[in-house]
Lab assay of single mutants.
Amino acid sequence: DTINITLPDGKTLTLTVTPEFTVKELAEEIARRLGLSPEDIKDTHNGKTLDPSLTLAEYGITPGSTITLEIK
């Protein structure tokens, strides 16, 4: 299953994830792909900052969802 990550420059990154991924694991994968530190990444969905300890499923993030990435 894939989700879309909207980057600060407007580009989109597509990642393969499972509903059990935590937001922290997602940030780590994004950081790895972009050459950043996971601590520099802030993920938001529907205007809410995502708690790193919760899973994508707990936020109702499903395949095809879009998450907005902010760099701290």
Rank of each mutant, 00 (worst) to 15 (best):
A31E: 04
N46M: 10
L54R: 14
V23L: 12
T44E: 09
T66E: 07
N46F: 15
N4F: 14
G35C: 12
R32D: 05
A57S: 09
T6S: 13
F21D: 04
G35A: 05
D51R: 04
D43W: 15
E58A: 05
T68R: 14
I5W: 00
T49K: 13
D51K: 05
T49M: 10
S37M: 10
L56V: 02
T55M: 03
T16G: 07
G60K: 02
G64N: 04
R32Y: 06
V23Q: 00
P19I: 04
D43S: 15
V17T: 04
N46R: 08
T18F: 08
A57L: 14
K11A: 10
P8F: 04
T14C: 10
T44C: 15
T2H: 10
T49Y: 12
N4V: 07
P38Q: 06
T66Y: 04
P38R: 06
L15P: 00
G10I: 01
L15K: 00
I3Y: 02
G10Y: 03
I61Q: 01
D43K: 15
T18C: 05
T16M: 11
N4E: 06
S53V: 05
D9W: 12
S65W: 05
K48Y: 04
T68G: 06
T22P: 01
T68P: 04
G10R: 03
T2Q: 10
R33F: 13
V17I: 13
I61V: 08
A57Q: 10
D40A: 12
I30M: 05
T62K: 05
G60I: 02
T6V: 15
T6D: 07
G47F: 15
A27Y: 15
L56K: 00
E70P: 08
E29F: 12
V23T: 02
T68D: 07
P8I: 08
I30W: 00
P38E: 08
P52T: 13
E28D: 10
D51H: 05
G47D: 06
S37R: 10
V17N: 00
S65K: 04
E25T: 04
L36T: 12
E39C: 15
A31C: 11
T6E: 13
I5G: 02
T22M: 02
Y59Q: 15
F21G: 04
G10W: 02
A31P: 00
T62G: 12
E70K: 06
G60Q: 03
A27S: 11
T62I: 12
G64Y: 01
F21R: 04
N46Y: 09
I5F: 03
D40M: 13
L26Y: 02
G47Y: 04
A27K: 14
L54F: 08
T55K: 07
T12P: 02
I3G: 02
D1T: 14
N4H: 11
E28P: 00
G10H: 04
T68N: 12
P63Q: 05
L13V: 09
E58W: 04
I41Y: 07
T55W: 01
I3W: 01
G60V: 01
R33T: 07
D9C: 14
T6I: 15
S65H: 07
N46W: 14
L7E: 02
Y59C: 15
T16L: 11
I67K: 00
L36P: 01
T12E: 06
G10Q: 03
E20K: 08
D9T: 09
V23H: 01
I5L: 04
I30G: 00
T12L: 10
D43F: 15
K72I: 14
L56S: 00
N46H: 11
D1R: 05
R33P: 00
G47W: 09
L7I: 05
I61R: 00
P8M: 09
L7N: 01
K11E: 11
G35Y: 03
V17A: 02
E25Q: 13
E20C: 07
T14W: 06
L15W: 02
V17L: 06
L50H: 03
L13C: 07
D1V: 15
P38H: 08
E58G: 03
G64H: 02
E28I: 10
G47A: 05
L34Y: 04
V23E: 00
A57F: 12
L54C: 11
L7F: 13
I30Q: 00
S37G: 08
T55H: 02
T55L: 04
G35H: 08
T18N: 07
I5Q: 07
R32H: 09
D40G: 09
G64P: 01
A27V: 15
P52D: 11
L56E: 00
I3C: 02
A57I: 12
P52F: 12
L50F: 09
E70D: 10
I61K: 01
I5N: 08
S65I: 08
L54M: 15
N46I: 11
D40C: 15
L13F: 12
R33A: 11
H45Y: 13
P63L: 05
R32N: 09
E70A: 07
E39V: 15
E28M: 12
G60S: 02
K42V: 14
P19E: 05
E28F: 09
L69R: 00
S65Q: 07
G64R: 01
D40S: 12
I67E: 00
R32M: 08
A57C: 07
L54Y: 07
S53Q: 11
